[in-house]
């Protein structure tokens, strides 16, 4: 599946970035460039879905696209999709991902869930102490508080959690395989969690595919939990601070606050002792994430429309090309227009 995901990313990137952009995207690199790419090329689903992706695994994936004849790469790391590559893109059927809003936090959610299930399982068996599946002290502390606050000894929590999990998983439109994966990584008394290698054998797909389907399942499930929040109070609690709706990086966030208070670009730059170009990066990030962001102080409606027109005419989002076509606009203005997209 990594191969299909890569193909889709390369298609979206429109031959305008090097293959490295896809690597940083999948690992969820928090740099201005990667974050802007997400917005410009509409790559929200894949941001940070494989935070630990190893370079050799990534390169194997890219190479296999070459071997299939779907892409051609050049020495500078740029690539082009071939005819058969484009053909493949039309046939793609990828599972749902929402990397942008979870960015790896889905694993924290699952970590909490698995430790709580393990605790309840041991409690049901009358075992008082056991070796926790989660070593992370923050998760342990969180779960301890959750269990105490939920009066877990009464046996009610088990009932409620079972009901919530079963109902919400059924409502999420997950495949049977995905539901299986979600419970197979849980562990308890007499039911040990299953290592990836065995899951890969049982389900007849690679370990990485199992992991990707698992992540996709978590994203879908978490969305359901948030959408029907009054129905699943315990799961909603477990999903506390997991979904990221304000996705600005720390520094961009500060700039955004000052900007919203009415400071100008120049003022912010002076007050924060940051280069104007950095503040511009922040504003582009803001434009991308905040649908209500008003860009008219920097670029007029007409200018914005001109950029959109140029994108269509030249079928590109390459800044240099657009700048050549619209020499009276600055790079910053063009980036803003790209970030905001069609309005």
């Amino acid at each position: 599946m990594l191969r299909q995901i890569l193909l889709h990313i390369f298609y979206q990137l429109n031959n305008e970035r090097t293959i490295n952009a896809a690597y940083h995207l999948l690992r969820g690199k928090r740099s201005g460039q990667t974050i802007q790419d997400v917005g410009i090329f509409k790559l929200y689903p894949y941001f940070g879905i494989l935070r630990k992706l190893a370079r050799p695994v990534f390169e194997d994936g890219v190479n296999s696209l070459g071997v299939e004849g779907w892409i051609r790469t050049d020495d500078n790391g740029y690539f082009t999709l071939t005819e058969s590559g484009l053909e493949q893109v039309r046939k793609l059927a990828l599972p749902f991902f929402d990397g942008w809003h979870y960015q790896g936090n889905e694993h924290i959610f699952y970590g909490r869930l698995s430790l709580i299930v393990q605790s309840l399982s041991n409690q049901a068996a009358g075992i008082r102490s056991f070796i926790p599946v989660q070593r992370n002290e923050e998760i342990q502390g969180w779960c301890r508080q959750f269990l105490l606050a939920s009066d877990f000894r009464s046996g009610m929590l088990q009932q409620a959690l079972f009901h919530e999990m079963k109902t919400s998983m059924e409502q999420s439109g997950l495949s049977t395989l995905q539901k299986e994966l979600l419970v197979e990584r849980l562990t308890g008394v007499g039911v040990t969690g299953i290592p990836w290698q065995q899951l890969s054998f049982e389900h007849e797909m690679t370990e990485l595919d199992c992991q990707l389907l698992f992540i996709s399942a978590l994203h879908k499930w978490l969305d359901t939990i948030h959408q029907h929040n009054e129905q699943f109070p315990y799961l909603l609690k477990l999903a506390e601070n997991i979904r990221i709706d304000n996705v600005l990086t720390g520094s961009a966030y500060q700039t955004a606050q000052m900007y919203n208070q009415g400071y100008s670009l120049e003022q912010i730059s002076a007050m924060r002792r940051l280069k104007a170009s950095t503040i511009e990066d922040h504003l582009v990030e803001l434009a991308m994430n905040e649908p209500t962001f008003d860009s008219t102080p920097f670029i007029s409606h007409e200018q914005h429309e001109a950029v959109q027109q140029a994108v269509r005419t030249y079928a590109t989002r390459k800044l240099r090309v657009l700048h050549d076509a619209l020499p009276h606009l600055s790079y910053f203005q063009i980036r803003l227009a790209l970030a905001k997209g069609e309005v």
Partner: peptide, 15 residues
Amino acid sequence: ALMTWDGRLQKLLFG
């Protein structure tokens, strides 16, 4: 025999 997903969940939570 493999357990169904909800069977497994039940076994985990209730033993």
